[in-house]
Design a protein around this nucleic acid. Structure first.
Lengths: 204, 204
DNA sequence: ACAAACCTAAACTATTCAGTTCACTTTGGG
DNA sequence: CCCAAAGTGAACTGAATAGTTTAGGTTTGT
């Protein structure tokens, strides 16, 4: 009923997760030492290793957990009955703010970097991150298309393009550490440009 | 006249670069051992360290070198006097093929991953990669706008959006190792969708 | 043929880190 | 109040790795 390698037990389980989250986010995957994680969690290394078979599984658990949490939080803000321009603007703002968060950026860096030597991680992250987000978006798009508010032959592609447009300019700079602070003005600008371009193509 | 830490000398210099390129691309930055690099280069570790002050500077040199090489190669294919749809299609195809190459993906992973503990790398890569590409593209866009072939208030944003649209679907999968082979059909599809969307917004 | 510049091989230093082990202590449910 | 499960801490194993050093070998131009 559970994953290939077991992840069991608990009392300080949540402490370990919290500590690991902190250290992984600060130091990356390779950069984080298990000793540091145990110290940050206020837990002995032995306890940590009684929960998780190894460092990788610990990280996977964090990734899974936080991706779900964030994905849900991000989608709760939106009122899907509003007109498309509004829905898209709200969604894009919410998505872009998330994409620019320290957590999201660091998670992306780690999962991309490790996806070579650690393929399950890349797969898992893609599925519970970008793919899930896109699926949610497609659900909405299909409804809007049925309502005649949007015109897209391929809602999947539309969703991919829309998400991608949100990354223009700011995200690219963020991921390479070229820019670290983002004003509301900058964010609103990228969002409205993304919405305009999307509607120019797919507006009814 | 040169960077903070010197990178000089030579006879097997190019061998070192070639070996380092191979190993870094295979194992990432942290994953690559200097012993492996020296072995792959057919060179002693002492020689390697007589060229480069440390592993980081060695990697920076590779990145700089290869980014320039690739950027030039990618831009040579395009005939900028053709009509915009054709220029954009050719450019997008060339760009997307590059973005999906093992080299580009691995370079992106490494530079993104290390940009926290190693900020100069992120900066340098951004400038000689995405930023340079965008600048080249903007040069063309301004000409096409002057010709009345395109209508964009903000050519920088247009270029950012266009590049970003090329990453839809395939690149996201590639960076996380979810998909590793890409048919011409898939590539052409993403390219034509990117061109359509861009022209819907910015076509004259 | 010769010397300066270049290169080699291998051992060495010093550090870091994942994961294990074990004798001991804490905790909470019955 | 007791005991079994859960947790502790500290030492330990084993392996890797960046970067240095040394003593000697090879290339190069002239």
């Amino acid at each position: 009923m559970n994953a290939p390698a077991a992840i069991r037990k608990g009392r300080k389980f949540d402490d370990v997760l919290a500590g690991a989250r902190t250290i992984f986010m600060r130091d990356g995957f390779e950069g984080a030492s298990v000793d540091d994680i145990a110290r940050a969690a206020g837990v002995s290394k032995a306890t940590l290793y009684s929960y998780f078979p190894d460092k990788r599984m610990l990280f996977m658990e964090i990734a899974r957990h936080e991706c779900n949490r964030m994905a849900e939080a991000t989608l709760e803000v939106v009122d899907f009955s509003a007109p498309p321009r509004e829905v898209m603007t709200t969604t894009a703002t919410s998505l872009l703010r998330f994409l620019l968060s320290d957590f999201s950026l660091q998670m992306f860096r780690i999962c991309a970097a490790e996806s070579g030597r650690f393929p399950e991680l890349g797969q898992a992250f893609y599925k519970s991150g970008p793919e899930m987000g896109r699926n949610r978006m497609v659900e909405y798009l299909k409804i809007a298309i049925a309502r005649g508010e949007l015109a897209a032959d391929d809602p999947d592609m539309m969703a991919e393009q829309f998400s991608e447009l949100c990354k223009a300019k700011l995200w690219t700079r963020a991921i390479f550490g070229v820019q670290t602070e983002f004003s509301d003005t900058e964010i609103n600008d990228v969002v409205s440009e993304a919405v305009e371009t999307t509607l120019a193509r797919y507006g009814a």
